[in-house]
């Protein structure tokens, strides 16, 4: 496996999940991931410190998202519940996939300032210092947004509506 293939395999899933939390559609999230790796193919060789590749990728994806968001005022944001995203119909995985979708749904309802740092925190791929570098914000601001974002998330979880049943349910915690 080439270095490039290894890089793609190591990071594309977390990048997709981050992209999805920002862009809220699978098509746009896939586009963001593709654009990120195309940019890596073009410019990644300029990166002196190869240990920074992960941060470079997340930063690039975030900037691609912001750049597109600034340009595109014509396309309204779609509510996650309305997205035609089909989950695989395996009964054994249904509960886990429901929790996964609810997790992303909850992140999508957060204030914009909290969504990116909190998603990166929960993806667990980056430390808070790396998150600061990716989002180009001070370290103290990252800590503050993660703390306040979690508080808002917990409040949402207490009153979240299950889109499958329309019932108000508590978030199903594991472990």
């Amino acid at each position: 496996m080439t270095e490039f293939e290894e890089l793609v395999d190591t990071h594309y899933q977390a990048l997709y999940r981050f992209g999805y939390s920002l862009a809220k559609t699978p098509e746009r999230a896939s586009d963001l991931v593709q654009q990120t790796f195309v940019k890596w193919a073009e410019k990644g060789h300029q990166l002196k410190d190869r240990s920074k590749a992960k941060t470079w990728l997340f930063t690039t994806l975030y900037r691609e998202y912001l750049s597109h968001a600034r340009r595109s005022t014509k396309f309204p944001e779609r509510d996650l519940e309305e997205a035609e995203y089909q989950l695989p119909a395996k009964a054994a995985d249904a509960d886990r996939q429901l929790d996964a979708k609810r997790a992303v749904n909850l992140l999508a309802q957060l204030d914009e300032t909290f969504r990116a740092p909190l998603t990166l925190f929960f993806l667990q791929e980056q430390s808070y210092k790396e998150i600061a570098e990716t989002l180009d914000i001070p370290i103290g601001t990252v800590m503050s947004r993660i703390s306040r974002g979690k508080k808002q998330l917990r409040e949402l979880m207490e009153t979240a509506v299950d889109p499958e049943t329309e019932n108000v349910v508590k978030f199903n915690q594991k472990g």
Binding site: V8, S30, Q34, F37, R96, R102, A103, F122, L123
Partner: peptide, 24 residues
């Protein structure tokens, strides 16, 4: 940890990896 585990199970489109390598 519970939330992070849920997020980690958010499914990835089946063809994303192949599409990536094709685009590249």
């Amino acid at each position: 940890l519970a939330f992070a585990e849920s997020l980690s199970e958010f499914p990835i489109p089946e063809n994303l990896r192949e599409d990536l390598f094709e685009v590249l």
